[in-house]
């Protein structure tokens, strides 16, 4: 396996690399049950957290992951101010270079930005979500979580419900699931299910079709209330009525013994009701916990070009 500097998307990963990260997340997770949860593998290394879009969950997950590996974490606060002041991306990169950090965790509202940063820095760049493009650590933690339940994932079925069009999670997670041999289907209104999606995303038209298809997990996407430009459905109650996880549908899910997944944060009452949040086979909090383990595995795996060994 060749050394890899950056994690930008799922597509560019080899199967060997995917297995490596997923396999290594398991021992990381075991650390969490110890009284001392910290290992010194990244001691002396600096992780810079650069979130151009607000996300407490993902940024804390990366921060906890980095700290459990004994790295120093710096938050470069990019409130929209420096963007508004007209500092260009290339100027920001120049500044980052001068800070001599080893890893840059970046989230940006525009697709492709982490790739531009990666090209211009020696540090390892971890894409923590760019526009509608990719969210590779989310995909890896989803796969890790699913694999904990189904050691043999090939041939299993996952249906993704909601706004596929504007979701980087749907793009990355479905791509990774497909590569692992999991059958992926999607459910949602035509306005949010792109015609030009990859062939492996089978379109289901209703919850009836979903239950007939007998999925092993139902992956509810967050309705991007804040990121949508334009109207794609009339209103929230109608969306919830057609696509939300309500009690009746939850009963069907329970009958199938299927798991419930969600990338968080959940809009309660929009895509998932309070009752569904209590579902005994909900993996939502496990996804959060596994996120830390997977991000530790990723940080441990990537090799910055900043001189010296990351180990």
């Amino acid at each position: 396996m060749e050394a890899r500097k950056d994690l930008l998307d799922i597509e560019s990963l080899t199967m060997e690399e995917i297995s490596y990260v997923l396999d290594n997340a398991a021992p990381m997770k075991q650390l969490f049950t110890r009284s001392v949860k910290k290992v010194p593998v990244l001691r002396g290394k600096n992780v810079l957290s650069l979130f151009y879009e607000n996300s407490t969950r993902t940024s804390s997950s990366f921060e906890v992951a980095a700290k459990r590996l004994s790295a120093d974490v710096t938050e470069f606060s990019v409130s929209t101010s420096s963007v508004k002041k007209g500092e260009s991306l290339l100027d920001t990169i120049e500044t980052l270079q001068a800070m001599r950090c080893d890893y840059i965790v970046i989230r940006h509202s525009q697709a492709g930005v982490p790739g531009v940063v990666a090209k211009h820095t020696r540090a390892s760049v971890l894409n923590a979500g760019d526009g509608h493009h990719a969210h590779p650590t989310q995909a890896l933690l989803d796969a890790f979580t699913f694999r904990e339940k189904f050691p043999e994932v090939a041939g299993r079925r996952v249906v993704i419900v909601g706004d596929v069009e504007h979701s980087r999670v749907a793009r990355s997670t479905s791509r990774l699931f497909h590569r692992l041999g999991i059958d992926v289907a999607v459910l949602g209104p035509s306005t949010l299910i792109p015609d030009a999606r990859p062939d492996h995303m089978k379109r289901l038209r209703s919850w009836e079709e979903v239950f007939d298809w007998r999925p092993d997990a139902v992956y509810m996407l967050r309705v991007q209330l804040e990121r949508q430009e334009g109207q794609f459905f009339p209103d929230i109650p109608e969306y919830h009525g057609l696509y939300g996880m309500n009690s009746a549908r939850l009963e069907q899910v329970r009958k199938l013994g299927a798991y419930l997944m969600h990338p968080g944060p959940v809009n309660r009452g929009v895509e998932v009701t309070d009752e569904a949040m209590q579902y005994e086979r909900s993996l939502i909090s496990e996804q959060v916990e596994n996120g830390i383990a997977v991000r530790m595995a990723v940080l441990h795996w990537l090799k910055p070009n900043t001189g010296g060994s990351a180990l």
Partner: peptide, 9 residues
């Protein structure tokens, strides 16, 4: 189309 979907643009 397929490329805009893939790149999230």
């Amino acid at each position: 189309g397929a490329t805009s979907y893939k790149l999230g643009l």
